[in-house]
Amino acid sequence: MELQETLEEGYVEILDHLRKRSLWMLHYCTACGAVELPPTITSRFDAERFGIAPFVTSRQSDILLVTGYINIKTLKRLVTVYEQMLPPKYVIGFGSCTINGGIYWDSYAVVKRLDLYLPVDVYIAGCMPTPMAVLEGFRTLMKLIDEGKANGWRKYIENYDYYKANQRKVLKW
């Protein structure tokens, strides 16, 4: 019995180690953060050397990159997109808007804290975060996956009621 558990643990560890080298991102570009992504994935900074490539549909992607502020209309789409993705899936909050609202801190239409509505694995602070900061965020996520700590998707399933209640409060579903 113990042998089986050890084998399973080892299997998961090896899998995590391989999995972190292939992350496909869905960049949800509603705000100004989108402008920092082209330099991140093209010649100068080249995110593909870490196996990170932009993809276009939610079914194929692993990372949901939320670039910039989320207002109430886009939150609805964001939640739909997140629930369409297949686990293991990771959320990266990009820019200070996803942390505390950023320069939209007193706006009536903007959702201030992303992690009330979706489980965020990594935050990239800054307004704007430079491509180097974005790559640093990706590296942090890779490290967390390798250590088995990037469990946002599991948290979302376990605390589904909590997240749904928060979403309903804003969206009036």
Partner: peptide
């Protein structure tokens, strides 16, 4: 990647992609 003047992914990257996709938890 080299034509784009990038470093590019490792040679076995497609294999890693396939392993990742086959190890997804849900379908």
């Amino acid at each position: 990647a080299r034509i784009h003047r990038r470093y590019g992914p490792p040679l076995h990257q497609p294999l890693l992609d396939i392993i990742k996709l086959l190890s997804k938890k849900e379908n």
